[in-house]
Each structure stands twice: as structure tokens, then as C-alpha cells.
Amino acid sequence: MLRLLRPADFAVVSLAVLFVAAVAVVSWAPRSAAQVAELRGPSGIQRIALDNDGVYPISGRLGESVVEVKDGNARFVDSPCRNRVCIAAGWLARSEDFAACAPNGVSMRLRGQGQRYDAIAH
């Protein structure tokens, strides 16, 4: 066996390179970060698809909070509370992003494919 590589070996290596390229295309394809905004209030959970741009009210303990959905992102635009922390949270874009109006008992969490973690330690 003087030659280190046989013709079949070249075929296998070529297939392997194609396989790596295919894996790269599939796993590096751009994907949307989140698909659904989950609004949680005293009266239950309401889900809004993030491709439906619009303004959605949700009633809480003090009154109505308002959520705006645009270009796949969501934010609180109005809330009947004093500190307006939920509005200051700004746009939520990625899966598991979260904002809440605690006085009004209303919260919003984005949901997408899988779950995102803040940190993982071993």
C-alpha cells in the first residue's frame, strides 16, 4: 500500500466536505428571534403573533396597558402606573425578553424557538 489515498478515499473526503458545507448552511441560516408575545394579566394569558403589527390593549388591576407590535418586536407604549418601568424597558426583540408593569399586574414575555439562558455554569 504505497499510495496513501485511494480513489474511494477522495470520494469520501469530498462527501465529507459537502456535508460540512450543508451543516454550515443549515445552522447558520438567519432565523427570527421570537415569534409570539405572551401577555399575562389578571384575566389570563393572551398571545400575539409578532408578524401582526398593531396596538393591543391589555387590562390590568389599575386599568389598561397598551402593547405595540412592529417589525417582529414588541414594547409597552402606555400603562396606568406611576413609574412606567415597563415602557422604559423599550423594545423586546429576542425570545425570552421580558417586561412587566407590576402595579398593573401585567407582563409580557417573547417566545420563540427553544429557550434562551442568561448564563450557564458547570
Binding site: M1, L4, L5, R6, A8, D9, A11, V12, V13, A16
Partner: peptide, 10 residues
């Protein structure tokens, strides 16, 4: 049919 490389890569 295969040599060492043909086995090792898969």
C-alpha cells in the same frame, strides 16, 4: 474499497 483516510473522516 477504503483506505485509512476513507475510514477516519466519516
Amino acid at each position: 474499497l477504503l483506505g485509512p483516510v476513507g475510514y477516519a473522516v466519516p
